[in-house]
Write a protein that binds this DNA or RNA. Structure first.
Lengths: 166, 166
DNA sequence: CGGAAATCGTTTGGTTGCTAACAATCTCAA
DNA sequence: TTGAGATTGTTAGCAACCAAACGATTTCCG
């Protein structure tokens, strides 16, 4: 994701292509840097924390959500994690095969499936999440400490604004 | 990607799971909101701008990079766009079949392949990019205008910091 | 020169993710 | 009570993406 050209070079080239059109470069910089950062952070966390444990990004998110909220319904896992319920089905089966999580049918509603971690799953998260958060601190460390909450808030506003208008 | 729980609820639950461990919630908020925002923005841009033209996200990025820098070598497209050269091969073939881009063998170096847009490809980008940037403005509009450059800069620092230490 | 090493784009094989269709189950109004 | 409609998790089919292996070409150095 490392751009081979600087932002200034790109802006000049884009200006050539867009003579007479009104382009907002600040907005462009926000979105493009958002994607670059998200990709870089995800790759970094996958390599430094998840890969050594043989976990995919989605598998970790599922473990995380279940760890926090167990017992939890599968539809809630998908919503909280931000992926489709079909995707969840496959990941959940993998986690079940690895004895990290288990499915239980709901007694109140026969359509629902509840998910819990196994003791092994809880133990894994207890050692894995501190590692994960340590790398999150490394990532956020690129921004001055007194600006991090402001950054998180700005990102939260962007998400909320989109979800409001869909 | 809409969390079913508030951040405060999540923090309380996480605290229960992490008694005695030191977790930095500010860093956690930065990364989690980074992913939520990136996913929301990408989905929004795909639905509002790209899908009506039958373009995938990656296909649009390729068109964009080629549009700005043509003629450009494929390896540079992949680097600039942030995906593998294997992925690029497939996307490029699709764009070639749709008569939006063309491959040309380099005369100086027989291993290289140069890519250009067709006239139809340039015309498409001339009408597509203003639409795209308009939605970028909507996205960035959630953040006060005088804070957008600061936001972009913070995200740029995060990316640079990771790439420096890999 | 000349051959080993590096670099290029493509191919191959596999993973991950989604949408749409489906069976099972529950809800609710007639 | 009952049947139409809504909702749930799963399945099937498909698109996107990557790493590794490969053939073609160029570069480098003895």
């Amino acid at each position: 994701m490392a751009g081979a050209h600087t932002l200034a070079e790109t802006e000049r080239q884009v200006s050539d292509r867009l003579k007479g059109m009104s382009i907002d470069f600040s907005s462009m910089a926000v979105t493009s840097n958002l994607f670059r950062a998200a990709t870089a952070v995800r790759n970094h966390l996958e390599r430094s924390v998840l890969a050594p444990h043989g976990l995919s990004w989605t598998a970790f998110v599922v473990l995380w959500v279940v760890w926090i909220w167990e017992p939890i319904e599968t539809r809630q896992i998908a919503e909280e994690g931000g992926f489709s319920k079909a995707t969840l089905t496959g990941v959940l089966s993998t986690l079940e095969n690895r004895k990290l999580a288990i499915r239980k049918k709901s007694k109140e509603d026969g359509r629902l499936v509840l998910v819990e971690l196994t003791p092994a799953g809880r133990k894994l998260m207890q050692e894995l999440f501190p590692e994960f958060n340590q790398q999150e601190q490394f990532v956020a460390g690129a921004v001055p400490a007194d600006k991090r909450d402001e950054l998180a808030e700005a990102l939260r506003r962007i998400t909320a604004n989109i979800e409001k208008n869909d």
